[in-house]
C-alpha cells in the first residue's frame, strides 16, 4: 500500500508539529512508515518529513555527492527544486555524510536575517537511534523544565549549531529522523548543553 498524500502526511505533520513545539519530545511515525512501498536510499522518517514539507515553492539540498538518484526521486515526487547549500530551504543530511561535510554545511546554510528570520533553512537529519537518555540537556520554549536527548550529532557539530543560532531570532531548525521511524526536533530557540564531554 502506498502512502496517502492527504491523510498520512497530515498525521506526519502533526507529529512533527508536536515535536517542534516540544523540543526533545520523540514522536513515532511508524504507523505511516508501514505504508511506504518505495525502495529509497534514505530512512522512512527522513523521506516522510521531506514529503510533508517539500513542494514546488521550496528548494532542498542533499549533502552527499553520490545521491543523484535520491535527488531525482525527491524532485519527482514533490516538484521541489535542488539548490546549493547557501540557498536551500531544506537541507537533508544522510547517515553517510561526514562530520566535516556537515559542519561545513552548517556554516554555509541560510539562517535568516533580522527582518525576515523565517528565511532560514530547516534541516532533516538521518540519525542513529534517538533516545531521551543522552548527553544533551535541552532548555527553552516548549520545555517545561529540562529535557535529555541523544542524537547522532557530535559535540563539535552542536558547537557549530549553537554558533549559528547565537544571534536569535536568526537560526536553523533541526528535525532528526532515525531508522525506527522516530523524529525529534530542535528549533533555534532551544539551548543545547553537552554534558560529560571528556
Amino acid at each position: 500500500m502506498a502512502i496517502d498524500q492527504v491523510h498520512d502526511l497530515q498525521q506526519v505533520y502533526r507529529k512533527i508539529l508536536h515535536s517542534m513545539s516540544r523540543p526533545g519530545t520523540i514522536s513515532s511515525l511508524s504507523e505511516v512508515a508501514e505504508h511506504i512501498d518505495f525502495n529509497l536510499t534514505c530512512n522512512d522518517a527522513t523521506f516522510l518529513s521531506a514529503m510533508t514539507f517539500l513542494d514546488a515553492e521550496v528548494t532542498f539540498h542533499i549533502l552527499s555527492k553520490d545521491k543523484q538518484n535520491l535527488i531525482e526521486k525527491i524532485s519527482e515526487y514533490t516538484s521541489a527544486r535542488y539548490a546549493p547549500i547557501s540557498e536551500a530551504d531544506f537541507v537533508i543530511i544522510l547517515r553517510e555524510d561526514t562530520d566535516a561535510a556537515i559542519q561545513n554545511a552548517l556554516e554555509q546554510c541560510k539562517n535568516g536575517n533580522l527582518i525576515d528570520p523565517q528565511q532560514s533553512s530547516t534541516w532533516i537529519i538521518e540519525s542513529t537511534l534517538l533516545s531521551n537518555t543522552g548527553e544533551l540537556t535541552l532548555t527553552g520554549p516548549g520545555i517545561q523544565h529540562t529535557s535529555q536527548l541523544h542524537t547522532s550529532f557530535s559535540p563539535s557539530m552542536w558547537q557549530v549549531r549553537n554558533e549559528r543560532t547565537k544571534e536569535y531570532p536568526l537560526g536553523i531548525d533541526l528535525i532528526f529522523a532515525d531508522d525506527a521511524a522516530q523524529i525529534v526536533c530542535i528549533p533555534r530557540t532551544t539551548s543545547v548543553k553537552m554534558m560529560g564531554v571528556s
Partner: peptide, 28 residues
C-alpha cells in the same frame, strides 16, 4: 477536497506554522 484546501496550500501554511513555532511571537 478533504479539509477544503488543495495539498499545496496546506503545505505552505504548514511550513509557515513550523517557522512560527520556532520563532515564538514573530509574525510569519
Amino acid at each position: 477536497h478533504f479539509a477544503f484546501f488543495d495539498e499545496g496550500s496546506k503545505k505552505e501554511i504548514r511550513r509557515a506554522i513550523m517557522k512560527a513555532v520556532a520563532i515564538p511571537g514573530y509574525q510569519v
